[in-house]
Amino acid sequence: MTYKLILNGKTLKGETTTEAVDAATAEKVFKQYANDNGVDGEWTYDDATKAFTVTE
């Protein structure tokens, strides 16, 4: 299944996707991606759209 990450960081904005077996796996991938790019903020998840959002 495809999951999307929407980044609303102070220095990094954009979107990326990942293929994962479930939302928990996608969340781990996205949190590592955000951490690697220096984005740390409030996380939300919308199951209807399979989209995670992180806002700094």
Rank of each mutant, 00 (worst) to 15 (best):
M1V: 14
M1Y: 15
T2C: 11
T2V: 14
Y3W: 07
K4G: 03
K4C: 05
K4E: 04
L5E: 03
I6H: 06
I6V: 09
I6T: 06
L7N: 02
L7E: 02
L7Y: 10
N8R: 11
N8I: 14
N8K: 11
G9A: 08
G9C: 13
G9Q: 04
G9E: 03
K10S: 11
K10W: 13
K10C: 13
T11W: 14
L12Y: 15
L12G: 07
L12K: 10
L12S: 08
K13A: 07
K13N: 09
K13G: 05
G14K: 12
E15R: 05
E15Y: 12
T16G: 04
T17R: 08
T17F: 14
T17N: 06
T17C: 10
T18A: 07
T18F: 11
T18W: 07
T18E: 04
T18I: 15
E19P: 05
E19C: 14
A20I: 03
A20L: 02
A20Q: 07
V21I: 12
V21T: 13
V21F: 12
D22I: 03
D22N: 09
D22F: 03
A23S: 09
A23K: 14
A23C: 10
A23V: 12
A23L: 11
A24N: 08
A24G: 08
T25F: 07
T25C: 05
T25I: 07
T25L: 06
A26P: 00
E27K: 09
E27Q: 11
E27G: 06
E27T: 03
E27D: 04
E27H: 11
K28Y: 08
K28G: 07
K28N: 07
V29N: 06
V29E: 07
V29A: 08
V29I: 14
F30V: 01
F30N: 00
F30L: 05
K31G: 03
Q32V: 09
Q32T: 09
Q32A: 12
Y33I: 07
Y33S: 02
A34N: 02
N35S: 14
D36N: 08
D36W: 07
N37Y: 12
N37T: 06
G38R: 06
G38M: 07
G38C: 08
V39M: 08
V39G: 02
V39N: 02
V39P: 01
D40G: 08
D40M: 13
D40R: 13
D40W: 14
D40E: 14
G41N: 01
G41P: 01
G41M: 03
W43M: 04
W43R: 00
W43E: 00
W43F: 04
W43V: 02
T44A: 09
T44L: 07
T44W: 07
Y45Q: 00
Y45N: 00
D46V: 04
D46M: 04
D47H: 11
D47K: 08
A48K: 12
A48P: 06
A48V: 13
A48L: 13
T49H: 11
T49P: 03
T49I: 10
T49S: 12
T49D: 08
T49V: 07
K50N: 08
A51M: 13
F52E: 00
T53W: 06
T53R: 05
T53F: 07
T53L: 06
T53H: 05
V54T: 02
V54R: 01
V54P: 00
T55E: 07
T55C: 07
T55M: 07
E56S: 07
